[in-house]
Amino acid sequence: MSSWDEAPDVVCHLENVQGLVDVLTAARWKRHQFALLEFSEHGVVLIVEETACLQAKVYLKRDLFIRYDYNAHSRRRFGLSLGLFVDCLNAFSVPAHSNLIQIQYPGPQMQLLLKSVDSPDASICAEISTRIPETIAWDYNFEPAGANPLTFTVKSAALKEAIEDLEWPGSSIQIILEPDPPSVTLRGEGHGDLQIDFMYYANSDLLVAFQCDQRTSFKYKYKFLRATISNMPSSVLKENRGSKLSIGRGGMLKVQHLVSIAKPSVSHAYGGDPVGYQQSGRIAHIEFYVKPEESDD
């Protein structure tokens, strides 16, 4: 047990466990998923990928934590089961309690250690075994397609609804960006056709931003597109943020979400101004990369 005497590589404290559960749930598209967790002096990155076609990255900057002690010289990277990690964190999230937790790595057997640190007489502890990652995560190397970026921002809830509606035609979904009139079309063909248009001028409350100088069209596997949004917890969708979609060289699709993991204001029933907790810095970034099926051009 001598390793306990030395300071562990990472010790961090997080205030709102439910926020972390929500963010990680967004990247959880199936039951058994292997995730790569990487600690560095800047914060934590979690990477999940599937068959070299879909990758999710969750960025938790060190400002999200109320304490972040990093004592290693190089990045600490390990693999663990995302499902177990989320289920375990969920056990720490007790409704109407402050849920301050400590995350520590490594434990005596290289585990990830979680501990509630609210009260000395009632505590929750967890140890999750980690493993050495088998492969280095594939670097998606997203590059803009041309001189001007091809990108649009759509309300997350509307995007989720549109993608769920496209389940019925199935298999593959075509995303078409049209500069004139500026619009985005999601089109599914299979057991019948379904086309959903977001017109920039007509739906400016849904399609918040749009940038495109030439007609662009790529096809993506439905199940991968769905993975980018369908697991987003409804509490996150209620925040009414937008999701930014960009198409890069070769049709690589990047979907970015911002998720607030600030403490929920409901827990401040003891009065006082909750302004101190609404730090805009308390935002986690989630990015999905989806490879296209084939090029249309």
Binding site: A91, A122, I124, C125, A126, I128, S129
Partner: peptide, 16 residues
């Protein structure tokens, strides 16, 4: 009270 498998152990402790 705790649950322990080869991959994970998760428990709650109450004292005093």
């Amino acid at each position: 009270v705790d649950v322990s498998t080869t991959l994970i152990s998760l428990g709650a402790e109450f004292r005093k």
